[in-house]
Simulated scan of single mutants.
Amino acid sequence: MRKKCVISLVGSICLLLVALVLMTAYAKATPIEEPIKLNAVSFIATKTHTAKTFIEWIEMVNERAGGKMKIKFLGGPEVIPAREQVEALRTGVVDISISPIAYHSKIVPACIAWALSKDTPWEERKSGFFEHMSKLYEKANIHLLAEIGKGAEMYFFLNKEIKTLRELRGLKIRTIPTVATLLDKLGCKGVTIPRGDIYVAMERGLIDGFLSPPSLVIDLGQHEVTKCFVDHGFLVSVIVFGVNLDTWNSLPKDMQDLLSQTAEEIERIDYPRYFEIEAKAKERLVELGVKKIEFSPEDIKRFYAIVYESFSADLDRADPKNGSILKRLIIHKVGEGR
């Protein structure tokens, strides 16, 4: 009896060992599925609200992907210079990036249409504006995912106090491609310098002013070299979330859906938040000694007429066919109240 028990025990141990060997062999033969890895960069420093919103979205995606996909944030312009990031995205050096439409005029000339629109991101999706713009970006090998920053308009920040629209004439203003025509029509002298050089240029009098959302002026400490700002915003600061089109097409449908859904979520989260941030930033600027300038009703009307005429003319020159389509899809135009 005892002998039978021993034999039975030995048999059980042998079966267990065989099972372990088979399980090990199966595990080796079946590799663990690695998550899809994507990398992302921001055109602007991580301490800014824009970059923080981008990182917030990345964390949202990573959490909901359940280990199936992971986006790694590489950093800001210290990783890839800001103006080189669009080309890096287009060619697949990076998978995802955020950048302002000011950097996109060469690859999607009709992007200037955003400068004419006061519509919310979801209004632009509903009207067909976003869909049409997406098709244009696809031709540049970029999948358009989202837009943020529409609550942040550009304002004139100056180191010389003015009272009227006419006094903008002759001032040296830091320029970017999207505002070159506008500055010319206002009689300003456009000066091309990197964003990072604005502080020193203002300090040394190389420029008399620049355009920026108020919150960014505080984030970058530029209020220290600024005397006043003209409290009439324009040119919504549209920041585009883009995915390399080849990368996008390689993703499984559920991961594409995740990126799209979370992108639309961050649009709705960030839009009202931007308005609140910019309103508080303007109050803070005044507290810091930066004077708020308001034009007369006549000057305000003329100012916004020039803004619309300038951007509309730029769009007509850049891409008349698509420009005409996009203009018709805009519900609320710049200069109109909301």
Rank of each mutant, 00 (worst) to 15 (best):
G233C: 06
L315W: 11
S97I: 14
G221N: 08
Y274Q: 15
K126P: 06
D299N: 06
D316K: 15
G92H: 13
A115D: 14
W122V: 12
A313H: 13
S260H: 12
I193A: 04
L245M: 07
P272L: 13
M69D: 00
V307Y: 02
V307F: 02
R195Q: 12
T192Y: 14
D246I: 08
T24V: 13
I71H: 04
S250G: 07
L20A: 10
I101V: 13
Y274A: 14
L15P: 06
L220F: 07
L235F: 08
A40H: 08
G75T: 04
P194K: 10
L329V: 14
S310M: 04
S296K: 03
D246L: 08
K135V: 02
M23I: 15
P213D: 03
I330S: 07
M60Y: 14
N249E: 12
A65P: 09
V61H: 00
T192C: 04
E276L: 15
F43A: 12
Q85T: 06
P121G: 04
E278G: 10
G196M: 09
H232M: 09
D119G: 10
I162V: 11
E264N: 10
A180D: 11
V217R: 03
K185V: 07
V200D: 07
V21D: 08
I176Q: 11
R2L: 10
T181N: 09
D314C: 03
V79D: 06
L165Y: 00
L329T: 13
V6F: 08
I266G: 01
K292G: 02
D246T: 11
F73I: 11
I330F: 10
E147R: 15
A115W: 07
L235K: 01
E294H: 05
K185W: 13
V240W: 05
R125E: 12
L211R: 05
I198V: 15
L22V: 15
P177H: 09
I269Q: 09
T50L: 14
E87A: 10
D299F: 00
V230P: 00
E63R: 15
L89I: 04
T192F: 13
F210L: 06
M154I: 06
K172W: 12
D119V: 08
S127V: 07
L285Y: 00
K327E: 09
E267Y: 08
S42G: 14
L165G: 01
E309A: 13
